[in-house]
Design a protein around this nucleic acid. Structure first.
Length: 292
DNA sequence: GGTAGACCTGGACGC
DNA sequence: GCGTCCAGGTCTACC
C-alpha cells in the first residue's frame, strides 16, 4: 500500500524528522542516506506494520506492506499526520522570528514541527527514559522495553512500541531487572496500569483545549514527570510556553551569554521571556554558538 | 519557595 | 578484573 499525505507549507520532511532525538529511538529508524523514516506501528486492530515514510512533493509518501481495511488506512493517515505535525501552522512564529538573526533560518528550513510518537503514552515513557541519564542509556532502556513487551510484525519480526496493557501485564520488578530502567520502574509501571485501566485518559491531552498552565499541571501529576519532562511534553503537544531546561540547556545558554559560567534554569527562562508563547520554539531552534 | 540528598545505571578511569 | 567516581532530572523531607 502506498499513499501521499499533504502537509501545510512550508514543510521539509528531513527537518521535521531531525527536529530532536526521537528519530534515534526505536521503533523509529532513520536511513539518512535514503531519506526514509521507518516506524513499526501497532494498529488499533492489533495488526503490526512497518511504515516507510519519505519526502514527496507537497508532503510525505507513506508505504507499508500487507492488506489493510479502509478503517486501518484512515487510522494510518491520522497517525502519520499527528507524528509529523502535517497540519501544524507556524506562520505566527515565523512572523515573530523575523528580525532575530539567531532565528533567521527558521522559515527557510520550515522549523517548528517536533517529531512525535503516535501515542502520548509512548512519548511520556520515552521522556521519562531521558531523565537523569545519558542518551546512550535512554536508547538502551527504550530498546529493552520494546524487546520485552513489544509485538512483532509477522514479516520482519521488528517490534512495535508496547501498549500500556502489555507493560501493565508485567511487573515493576521485571522493568527493573530486565528492562534496566532502575528507580524509574514504579513510575513506568504505575503509568501503564493507570492508562491501561482507563483511569488516566492520557491520549485526550493530545486534543485538549486546556490553557497551557493547566495542561502542565496535568503532566506534572504523572510520577517521574518534573519541570523538564513537562516542558518537553508540552513542546510535543504543540505548546511552546516553557523551555525544557536540562543540563545541555544550561550549558549552551551559559556559553551563549555568560562566558561559560554556571547559570540557573530561571536565567535560561529569562533569556527567552520576550518570546512569550513561542519561548520553547525560539529556544529549540536558536542558532547556538556552542555546539559542544 | 528554596535546598540537600537519595534514587539507579553504565561508562570512564585508576590500580 | 575490580573498585571508585561521575553524569543525568525527579522526588521527598526539611527549613
Amino acid at each position: 500500500m502506498e499513499l501521499t499525505l499533504l502537509a501545510r507549507q512550508p514543510f521539509i520532511f528531513h527537518h521535521a524528522v531531525r527536529s530532536h532525538g526521537w528519530y534515534q529511538l526505536a521503533p523509529f529508524e532513520y536511513d539518512e542516506q535514503a531519506g526514509v523514516l521507518h516506524y513499526v506501528l501497532r494498529l488499533g486492530s492489533g495488526k503490526v506494520r512497518e511504515l516507510r515514510l519519505n519526502a514527496a512533493p507537497g508532503g510525505v509518501k507513506l508505504e507499508t506492506g500487507g492488506k489493510l481495511t479502509r478503517a486501518e488506512v484512515a487510522e494510518l493517515e491520522q497517525k502519520v499526520t499527528w507524528m509529523l505535525g502535517l497540519e501544524m501552522d507556524f506562520t505566527d512564529f515565523y512572523a515573530a522570528a523575523r528580525g532575530e538573526p539567531k532565528l533567521a533560518h527558521v522559515t527557510e528550513k520550515a522549523y517548528g514541527r517536533v517529531l512525535r510518537s503516535p501515542t502520548l503514552f509512548e512519548d511520556v515513557l520515552k521522556t521519562i527514559l531521558t531523565t537523569n541519564t545519558l542518551w546512550a542509556a535512554t536508547k538502551r532502556m527504550n530498546l529493552n522495553l520494546i524487546e520485552a513487551y513489544g509485538e512483532p510484525e509477522p514479516a520482519s519480526g521488528k517490534k512495535a512500541f508496547p501498549t500500556p496493557a502489555a507493560i501493565a501485564a508485567g511487573s515493576p520488578e521485571a522493568l527493573r531487572e530486565t528492562v534496566r530502567v532502575g528507580y524509574r520502574a514504579p513510575s513506568i509501571y504505575e503509568l501503564a496500569e493507570r492508562v491501561a485501566s482507563g483511569e488516566m485518559p492520557l491520549e485526550a491531552l493530545k486534543t485538549s483545549h486546556l490553557p497551557t498552565l493547566e495542561l502542565r499541571k496535568e503532566l506534572l501529576k504523572i510520577k517521574g514527570v518534573g519541570p523538564y519532562a513537562a516542558a518537553n511534553l508540552l513542546m510535543i503537544l504543540g505548546r511552546s510556553d516553557f523551555i525544557p531546561v536540562d543540563s545541555w540547556a544550561l550549558k549552551i545558554v551559559s556559553h551563549e551569554w555568560h562566558g561559560g559560567e554556571p547559570v540557573t534554569p530561571a536565567q535560561v527562562e529569562a533569556h527567552f521571556e520576550k518570546w512569550g508563547n513561542f519561548k520553547g520554539l525560539a529556544f529549540w531552534f536558536w542558532d547556538w554558538s556552542y555546539q559542544g
